[in-house]
Write a protein that binds this DNA or RNA. Structure first.
Length: 375
RNA sequence: GGGUAGGUUGAGCAGGUGGUGAGCUCCGCUGACUGUAGAUCAGCCGUCUUCGACUGUGGGGGUUCGAUUCCCUCCCUGCCCA
């Protein structure tokens, strides 16, 4: 029996589909957004907060958790779900992103990556096999193959080299899968080069992965380049029935763009990261809770939002909390942003069914265009 | 009343022995953040017409080419004595 099953039906919107991913810990309506809980916590939020916000699946991270508290300890304590008291589905990143973001702390070779721990400077080794072992110990519902992403602006030779390494690591990741109840997703790389992306889709989609992730995007390239790359990947995948996960995306305007091009799953730190410094997302665009003008605003962050922060608190109160550096500020802002983002995804799903998708997409584009339009 | 130490841009300071005081930390203002080394980081933070210029060292006066510095006087604050 497959660890996860995915059923999806096409819609009238481009390559968009409406689907359902069933995992050992529950189901996910797609397209869906997964809040990121790198260190076994979606920063500032309890599992109850996440459930109330409508979260169906969250992320954990191989690199961080293997260093602390260590995968072995999590396993001894009953696995990641029990450890963090999140009963729903969990996807674990393989640590591939850290190969990219911690560039100055690592050395890459064909076998794997050697890191200097950002915590204590100790030498750490991550290979496809070890990444899969860690994820098996964590017990996530979906494990990610160990990949290497690079700046798409690098010379094509280097982008191709990292991509080909990713393909070899994909095979090894799949061969090293540790448990039958855990799905494994492969990751397509290739920067913003159409030819490389097509080659990468061919190399990854031909393997027995349970899902296909698109990595290496939203790392500085333009919105247009990301959309064009998603078009290429979408064409190359054709009617491949597996779930498609766009890694590390996105901002409010990115979701519709990607959904139209066939994406089913998203994850991104943005809603929680920006929330902690006072930026909240609303139907009218974004709002900086530190702005002086909000100190006298008795209204909620977003009148259309049903989250705890919007139900119970005013912008003026939030503005005060951030000004006073009270931890409730980042917490309530995180509650709101995750709730709002998940609600946006719900509206987009509804829109795919009833024809209002374009209207939702355009409203968000107008509200956020000023900020997130791109280069 | 006497003595003493002080008064520097919102706050707290640094510096300054007659020769360029706009330097720091807070506060404040604005922005950034995309598979989280991020409750972080960046810019601004006297005024203006801002690649520059002007003003500013408690108030007033004096000496001087030139005063934050020297002199006179007044005001304010802390501490000690009476």
């Amino acid at each position: 029996m497959a660890p996860v099953t995915f059923t999806a039906r096409p819609t009238t919107v481009g390559r968009a589909r409406l689907g359902r991913l069933v995992t050992p810990h529950g189901l996910i309506d797609t397209p869906q957004f997964m809040p990121v809980g790198t260190q076994a916590t979606v920063k500032a939020l309890t599992p109850g907060d996440l459930a109330a916000a409508g979260a169906q699946m969250i992320l954990g991270n191989t690199y961080h958790l293997s260093l602390r508290p260590t995968a072995e300890r999590v396993a001894r304590l009953g696995g990641l779900h029990r450890f963090m008291s999140w009963d729903g589905p969990i996807l674990t990143d393989s640590g591939g992103f850290q190969v990219f973001s911690l560039a100055h702390l690592r050395r890459v070779d064909d076998d794997g990556v050697t890191f200097t721990s950002h915590l204590d400077g100790s030498v750490q080794r991550l290979t496809p096999e070890r990444a899969m072992e860690i994820q098996a110990l964590l017990g996530s519902d979906v494990a990610m193959a160990f990949d290497q992403l690079v700046d798409p602006g690098l010379p094509a030779v280097q982008v191709a080299e990292a991509m080909e390494r990713t393909h070899r690591w994909a095979e090894r990741s799949l061969a090293a899968r540790g448990r039958p109840d855990q799905a494994v997703f492969g990751i397509v790389q290739g920067g913003v080069d159409a030819e490389l992306r097509r080659a990468s889709v061919a190399a990854i989609a031909s393997q027995a992965f349970d899902g296909i992730a698109i990595g290496g995007l939203s790392v500085g390239e333009s919105k247009a380049a990301m959309a064009a790359t998603l078009d290429v990947v979408g064409d190359a995948l054709g009617d491949d029935p597996r779930p498609r996960y766009l890694m590390g995306v996105g901002s409010p305007v990115d979701f519709a763009t990607a959904i139209e091009r066939g994406i089913d799953l998203f994850d991104c730190v943005l809603p929680t990261r920006v929330a902690r410094t006072g930026q909240v997302w609303t139907d009218a665009g974004r709002l900086n809770l530190r702005n002086a003008a909000l100190q006298d605003d008795p209204g909620p962050i977003d009148p259309g939002c049903a989250c705890e922060a919007c139900r119970n608190h005013s912008r003026a109160y939030l503005a005060h909390l951030f000004r006073a550096r009270e931890m409730l500020g980042p917490r309530l802002a995180s509650v709101h942003n995750v709730s709002w983002t998940l609600a946006l995804l719900a509206r987009l799903r509804t829109g795919l069914g009833d024809g209002s998708f374009g209207a939702v997409r355009d409203a968000v584009a107008i509200a956020f265009g000023r900020v997130y339009d791109a280069v």
